[in-house]
Nucleic acid binder design. Sequence first.
RNA 1: UGGGACGUCGCCAAGUGGUAAGGCACCGGAUUUUGGUUCCGGCAUUCGUAGGUUCGAUCCCUACCGUCCCAGCCA
Length: 563
Amino acid sequence: MENKPESTATNNFIKTIIREDLKNNKNNGRVHTRFPPEPNGYLHIGHAKSICLNFGLAQEFNGITNLRFDDTNPTKEEVEYVDSIIEDVKWLGFDWDDRLFYASDYFDALYDYAVDLIKKGLAFVCEQTPEEIRLCRGTLTEPGTPSPYRNRSIEENLDLFERMKNGEFEDGSKTLRAKIDMSSPNINMRDPVVYRIKKAHHHRTGDKWCIYPMYDFTHGLSDMLEGITHSICTLEFEDHRPLYDWYLDVLETPCHPQQIEFARLNITYTVLSKRKLLQLVQEGHVSGWDDPRMPTISGFRRRGYTPSAIRDFAEKIGVTKAESIVEFSFLEYCIREDLNKTAIRRMAVINPLKVTIENYPEDMKDDYLEAVNNPEDASSGTHQIRFSKVIYIEKDDFMENPPKKYFRLYPGSEVRLRYAYFITCKEVIKDENGEVIELICTYDPASRGGNSPDGRKVQGTIHWVSAEFGKQAEVRLYDNLFLEEDPNKVPDGKTFLDNLNPNSLKVVTALVEPDLIDAKPGEHYQFERVGYFVADYKESRLGKPVFNRTVGLRDTWSKLMKK
RNA sequence: UGGGACGUCGCCAAGUGGUAAGGCACCGGAUUUUGGUUCCGGCAUUCGUAGGUUCGAUCCCUACCGUCCCAGCCA
């Protein structure tokens, strides 16, 4: 057995359980997990935590993981979601080999198990209406009352259940219910529904079935059928574990997977409920499930997050049973850490201010300067940037009346243009509204490349793009979708939608280095001193790029200014 | 007020009877042609509260407080 260094292998309570199981040779030393999404929406970052957990655990303990769609409710599930889920899990970097399953694969087996339940006298066909069932279930403090159909004969139940399957009854008119304990303090044990009638078209089984099994019945048996050893789910299923166990126990199945619950992920400034995400999509508050502001895996992908950053995040936040809210900035830290090492650097001016260098020769040609592609990665090489008499700099990099410690350009100050020359601000030109529209500067030809032979120092280095050779590109500046740390915390009469950030997307035309015009969709860049950007997978085209801001660079200066 | 769970630094999180890891954030300082990166240093006498057991408790016991989940023919 390998000893992983403590630094990379963090511990958690599930690993402790698995190690103990392995020590006792439980399951003959096998570790077999599964990721069981319901295809009723796109996967989000909370699912990513679960995916990394399930696949990661198997990897660490020499096991395997199945991908299984929990598709027992045909009225909510669609193939579009199946396809997106497969794509997203793959993109995250996980592989299930040939073990792609669907709970619907087991409908025949499940039906047989239900018949067994009836034969054992442990299930009955109930004819109560949904309302009657609810009324008879009791409350949190009062026991329920048994269904009047509870004591039908096994023969009658068998007959009725078969006729349910054959489509003889209307939706909602009958159910198959387990016969457990109507006075259990655990409401899940009060004769739960096992099968319901739904004359609905299923995305895989078509019209073969008009009865569909419920989650509790399906899940444990599916786990068992696949030989799952550790069935990991979220905390809200803790109350269901007795029922999970009950089905497997009374049906005397050949194996009995262990359900283990962990706390689901919460992140500040975002919602992670499929219902709410669906609402954002359907009501058009975002452009779709993969809108770069969405906390979906496909949204993060378009935003420019990488699989490794998301996996790293999942590892770093850990796994516990304590509910917690992770700061969104923690995720940002993870993507910056990744992109810092890998992203190619380029200069781009997001908010341009014209600068004319008055002493730069009109007829200067081919003034190529060398710039490194990534200071963190020598193997990425260098590229050439062409200088010109008129350039653009960032508006933020000039102030007419600067505060103390402002290192950038102001009247009379000298700064370095990255990889180019020292320039000094000589004159400020304003429009009729007093807005600064142009700067007249001089440059020091001796400082070519960014250093002056006389050893003169400048405090600031700013980025620039040539007016003559730079290109225009659409840049989408994204910000949090919600203004509140907890978007769900709202006054009476308001909803989480009232916390939507009206400025979560700002589209600008930026000036970028010429080679960026042919950025390939999905390519990551650091726009120096600005942030990390990705050429949009969906809408960026060669020759007409669209860049999405993944995350800004850490900005100590603006933080200082806010104080 | 039935049942199930959880409470360790601003945020995440190890530790589970021998006297509080780590990461993020934050605060200093160094390096820097990105006010980026990197580096170095600081950052819980205290583990929801109160009792008890013990030579010794975050870890065991009791009570209390707080938070979350459960009354879908959803998952």
